[in-house]
């Protein structure tokens, strides 16, 4: 995972691309520019964190089309759609399809930078959660079926006795399974276990 998030910019206008790089560069963020959507699709690695700033109005593939394409491909990089006068309905349509944000040209530079920051943070958080989810899932995989049953009942808030009755096993056995689950899931407390289980449920 690259430690440094990148701001990807797709705009057909070179002046806009250059000036944007100049602006974003002023807050120390790494900027990578593309002159058209196709270039971006070709070069972009989903593992790269950061955000995408794209103009709605471009020759060839428009910003909206690019957003749709990325959504279809399961690439979830946050997108800031830059619109101009008259593009608002289009942008609204894009928002409903899951675009992260849009901003109207000519924009306030601070607002733009704030949104970039926000998107980068959101991307980082999203990527982090995604990592945890994958870890939890991997740990759950390692449980035996009986341990899985016990895990689910415990997370649902049942006591050992209740679990023993539900599974028609002795409470002692439940205790043993519980210990194993705690061990395999690498948590020390019930609370930690329940927290991990939320990632499992949401996935």
């Amino acid at each position: 995972m690259p430690p440094e998030p990148t701001v990807f910019v797709v705009d057909d206008d070179p002046a806009v691309r250059q000036s944007f790089k100049w602006l974003v560069g002023s807050i120390g963020l790494k900027v990578q520019t593309f002159s058209c959507a196709q270039d971006f699709i070709r070069d972009y690695d989903p593992a790269d964190s950061g955000c995408l700033v794209v103009d709605v109005r471009m020759p060839g593939m428009s910003g909206i089309e690019l957003q749709e394409k990325l959504a279809n491909d399961g690439i979830s990089i946050p997108i800031i759609v830059v619109t101009a006068y008259g593009d608002v309905p289009t942008a609204v349509r894009a928002m409903k399809r899951g675009a992260v944000d849009f901003i109207e040209k000519p924009y306030n530079d601070q607002a733009m930078l704030d949104r970039i920051q926000l998107c980068i943070e959101r991307d980082a958080k999203m990527r982090h959660e995604k990592e945890i989810r994958r870890e939890v899932a991997w740990r759950v995989e390692r449980l035996t079926p009986r341990e899985r049953e016990v895990f689910e009942l415990i997370v649902a808030g049942r006591s050992n006795k209740e679990v023993a009755r539900a599974l028609n096993i002795s409470p002692k056995t439940v205790e043993a399974h519980r210990a194993k689950v705690m061990d395999k899931m690498a948590v020390g407390s019930l609370a930690e276990l329940v927290q991990l289980s939320t990632y499992l449920e949401s996935s």
Binding site: D13, V16, L23, V24, A84, Y85, P106, Y107, D109
Partner: peptide, 21 residues
């Protein structure tokens, strides 16, 4: 009008970006 706005916005945006940066 959108085309017009776009045409105007491009240099303006550039100017704003340069100034802000």
């Amino acid at each position: 009008a959108a085309a017009l706005a776009h045409e105007l916005n491009q240099p303006l945006t550039a100017v704003v970006n340069y100034c802000a940066g």
